[in-house]
């Protein structure tokens, strides 16, 4: 294991460019299912450029925390992304941290986002921060248990090692612990990326919004970086799900052919996962805030059962 600079640069570019496309795709598919035409899938790129070109209005009550926050969200999401294998089995910066570090780095971004919500003295921001931190706190144990499951089966918390262990002949990743842990992680994914049963990404109604409430005061390039960061975080979490639980096709060696195949597999898996997310969003109604713990407790129990089944089925 070592740090590969060119791979790091390539992966950074991939994260930056792919993330808006993924959210555009999800929005588009959702619109199609709802019998709307929907925006084009590359609309998020135009949005980002538009935000970047706009003047900024900063609240008179805000401090430097408010201005630093979008940068922190953006950078933490990118750094976390560099530790997750996307196309190659070994992430470029896999040496600097595994699953626990990814969770930690993303939590740092969330910490600042919640502070940024409180900073401009608005009620919406406080509401969003309070809800975000609550839901994150409840999602975290389930996520950690699911990670524990795959990590104990691979004997490592480093994502590259987990992927390699999954690629061993025999398709071990198609067994009960993985399936249960995947179900748990999927629920966590919905909660962490603010998807429908938990949060509604398409609304600005104060009673329902969480993520949007926190970034309500942002404008101009601050908004661009906050949104871009959120999109990258979504990509990172989805990559974590696809590649940890279905490590098919990730390039074990760096050759053009393997990289091409890896990219194709990654795209296919992302499309399927995005389809699943869209389907869940389409068929479910948003839950009341105090019903979300029910859902997350289900994720927790699923993850616990995943762990139990690692040693009770031998």
């Amino acid at each position: 294991m070592n740090v590969d600079l060119s791979a790091a640069v390539a992966q950074t570019a991939l994260l930056l460019l792919l993330a808006p496309l993924l959210s555009g795709l999800i929005k588009n598919w959702k619109a199609k299912l709802q019998n709307r035409r929907g925006a084009r899938i590359w609309q998020p790129y135009f949005d980002l450029v538009k935000y970047l070109r706009k003047d900024m209005v900063i609240s008179e009550h805000a401090s430097w925390i408010f201005s630093v926050t979008p940068g922190v969200i953006f950078l933490t999401a990118l750094s976390a992304g560099l530790m997750v294998p996307l196309v190659t089995a070994n992430a470029p910066l896999g040496l600097f941290g595994g699953a626990i570090a990814v969770v930690g780095v993303l939590a740092l971004g969330r910490f600042f986002m919640a502070l940024g919500g409180l900073d401009p003295a608005t009620t919406f921001g406080g509401m969003g921060s309070s809800r975000e931190m609550t839901i994150a706190a409840l999602a975290e144990p389930a996520m950690m248990l699911a990670i524990f499951t795959v990590a104990t089966m691979a004997g490592s918390t480093n994502l590259g090692q987990i992927v390699l262990a999954g690629q061993e002949p025999g398709w071990k990743f198609l067994d009960a612990p993985h399936a249960l842990a995947f179900a748990a992680m999927f629920i966590v994914l919905l909660a962490e990326t603010g998807r429908i049963p938990v949060d509604n990404p398409a609304t600005h109604l104060e009673l329902t919004m969480i993520h949007e409430a926190m970034v309500l005061e942002y404008s101009g390039r601050n908004l661009a970086f906050a949104e871009w960061g959120a999109a990258i975080k979504q990509l990172v979490l989805m990559a974590l799900l696809t590649n940890l639980f279905f490590p098919l096709g990730l390039a074990p060696v760096v050759t053009p052919a393997a990289l091409g195949a890896g990219l194709a597999f990654f795209a296919a898996k992302l499309l399927i996962l995005a389809g699943a997310v869209v389907l869940v969003e389409f068929t479910n109604a948003k839950l009341r805030l105090f019903r979300v713990p029910d859902l997350l407790s289900a994720a927790f129990i699923l993850a616990t059962l995943a762990l139990v089944s690692t040693f009770l089925f031998r």
Binding site: L115, P120, S130, M133, A137, L138, M144
Partner: peptide, 25 residues
Amino acid sequence: GAMLALTSALAAACFVKAFGITFLA
């Protein structure tokens, strides 16, 4: 381990509150 994860996430929530309410806005 899961409880440790719960603890540290709740601690983060608590310090968003402690820092945010005390020093911000």
